[in-house]
Nucleic acid binder design. Structure first.
Lengths: 131, 131
DNA sequence: ATTGACGTTTACGTTAACGTCAACTATATT
DNA sequence: AATATAGTTGACGTTAACGTAAACGTCAAT
């Protein structure tokens, strides 16, 4: 049901955030849910945007960066200049992500090494205990 | 020269941060440079720690998280309980990094898709112009 | 001897991303 | 009608990670 409508607390509980957070995201221009009087009505598209924002956060993006990237996903009808500028931004972002991937892989390798040292130390302790 | 000594501005300019930042890291317990009177004397080991902190930041870690992870790298002489706890933390961190890697790869793929759409749009505009 | 470059501590200011009230509205239920 | 439930808009508080400014020490060079 892609045309389902979500209340603010529906989305809040689903994504394990507070209503305040969703209002804040709207205030910052990351969301623009429909209204019925005062109440916010979140669409499926809004829900996807929330998921993208949270993924961005997990990657260490600021809300502003997330907003920019999410806006990339909806090119709309642009002129050539805008498209070129967008391609440039995509290249920049790609570079950032590339170094981040490299950094994460490094950290992972080092954790492997530390883990190996830990297990070796434990092994040694056990051998000493049974000697 | 692994025994070289760095001034605070040496490291600041090398890593493109301010002296204030290095003092702040010390204040937060991430660094503990030697002193000669008032002056801080940064060793090669301190330099490595700074690099680790900054890599952590690029990965979206808080300073506290970076400090914890860096401390993992120097197990020192621990007892079995500490080693087990450390192994647990390593596993947790490994899981976080794994999802982060997945998130980044997703973002990268989506950027690929947006880029393709952009280039296609530009292509179309060019063809229209020469028709 | 004073200027300038570099360092120090102390302390207050700032931004991002919300948390936490308070006071109010609307709707549904008992 | 009164209560409960879910929503709203301010407005102020909070934490992390520094920035910025003041006031001072030190040492070499002019």
């Amino acid at each position: 049901m892609p045309d389902r409508i979500y209340s603010i607390s529906d989305l809040a509980s689903e994504f394990d955030i507070t209503p305040r957070t969703l209002r804040f995201y709207e205030e910052k221009g990351l969301l623009a849910p429909a209204r019925q009087g005062q109440k916010r009505l979140f669409s499926h598209a809004d829900r996807v945007r929330v998921a993208l924002i949270l993924r961005g956060k997990r990657c260490g993006l600021s809300l502003e960066e997330s907003r920019d990237i999410i806006n990339m996903y909806e090119p709309g009808q642009n002129n050539a200049e805008q498209l070129h500028s967008l391609l440039g931004k995509i290249e920049e972002r790609r570079a950032v992500i590339a170094t981040q991937l490299a950094d994460l892989n490094e950290m992972m390798q080092e954790l492997d090494a530390v883990q190996a040292r830990c297990e070796a130390a434990l092994q040694t302790m056990q051998e000493e205990a049974t000697s």
